[in-house]
């Protein structure tokens, strides 16, 4: 299948005054094919959202991105060409639907604005919005279009946001923690909805979350990010069933579960390092129980089965 998004060696430096701060991303490599979902798993501050913002071209002025972002048949993306792609060929849904909508306009007027931008004829917009809203499982479309964001529940708003992101039939959907702010049962419905939509519409998806279980539900492939680098990548089922990187193993072991017997959880000692620290060699080494002196050097990326793992301690 054709590659929709290819990110190579992405890093983002920040200029603060005269000073250039080290990039929190240390060479991110990703690839997504059409109809597929790549799930990015990582903890606070590992660079998940920064990666998404860099792809969308929404970085702050102080940012200096390096590396290559290639999109579909357009080749390398430049900031100048993003205006025509962002919001049409690449769309995004965010964590908090309450703050993603403007509180002083109705849902309908905000969605119509997007439709006009996408060159829908005035006469088609009404029926198109009805269709989009019913495709995300909302039936009372007339009331919803007339509502202000505060009049709808979080789950309904998230569905509206998804419908809005679908208006332009994007090639790539970036979903940044789309279920984190929702209750578990509502979040699960939203995940199922996103998957069904993808089956129907065939867009590629970059699904970002700290919630490993949510990612496992939707992703075909998983990339585990730690301190600004992809440390493990592979088919979702393989990564979940036989994680190779010590960090992935630790992360999966640390999840309590109603179906697992109780007892002491296997916790990773320490906490996620600050992105501002200079890291030499493997950034996970200080928390890793397998670490040796070798880990002070840049770890190689090895292939284990269908997974690629950036670690000294893995046997390929």
């Amino acid at each position: 299948m054709n590659v929709v998004l290819k990110v190579s060696d992405l890093a983002v430096d920040f200029c603060i005054g005269e000073k250039i701060v080290n990039s929190p991303l240390r060479g991110i490599n990703l690839e997504i094919r059409s109809g597929e979902t790549l799930g990015i798993v990582g903890e606070t501050g590992c660079g998940k959202t920064l990666t998404a913002t860099a792809i969308m071209g929404l970085l702050p002025a102080s940012a200096r991105p390096r590396g290559r972002i290639e999109f579909a048949d357009r080749g390398s993306l430049e900031p100048s060409s993003m205006g025509s792609i962002r919001g049409s060929e690449i769309t995004m849904i965010f964590q908090n639907p309450q703050s993603a909508f403007n509180p002083i306009f109705t849902i309908g007027s905000q969605m119509r604005l997007v439709a006009q931008k996408r060159n829908y004829a005035k006469s088609e917009i009404g029926s198109m919005l009805n269709e989009r809203l019913s495709s995300v499982g909302l039936t009372d479309t007339k009331r919803i279009l007339a509502s202000y964001p505060h009049q709808l529940s979080g789950g309904m708003l998230q569905r509206c946001m998804i419908a809005m992101a679908m208006i332009s039939s994007p090639k790539l959907l970036i979903a940044d923690e789309p279920t984190t702010a929702l209750d578990a049962t509502i979040g699960d419905q939203v995940l199922n909805l996103i998957r069904d939509l993808q089956d129907r519409e065939g867009f590629a998806m970059l699904f970002i979350s700290h919630d490993v279980t949510a990612v496992a539900k939707v992703a075909d492939y998983i990339s585990v990010i730690y301190a600004g680098r992809v440390v493990e990548n592979g088919p979702a089922s393989a990564v979940m069933k036989s994680p190779q990187h010590p960090y992935t193993k630790g992360l999966l072991g640390a999840i309590p579960s109603a179906s697992k017997p109780r007892g002491t959880l296997i916790a990773i000692p320490g906490s996620v390092p600050s992105v501002l620290n200079d890291v030499v060699g493997c950034s996970f080494a200080p928390r890793c129980n397998l670490a040796t002196s070798t880990c002070a050097e840049e770890p190689p990326t090895l292939t284990v089965g269908q997974q690629s793992v950036t670690c000294w301690m893995v046997n390929s």
Binding site: H210, I255, P256, T264, A267, I268, S271, V272
Partner: peptide, 14 residues
């Protein structure tokens, strides 16, 4: 809390 830290705190509470 992050997942890897959550496990530490749950163990500590127990």
């Amino acid at each position: 809390l992050d997942l890897s830290v959550q496990a530490q705190i749950l163990n500590l509470l127990e």
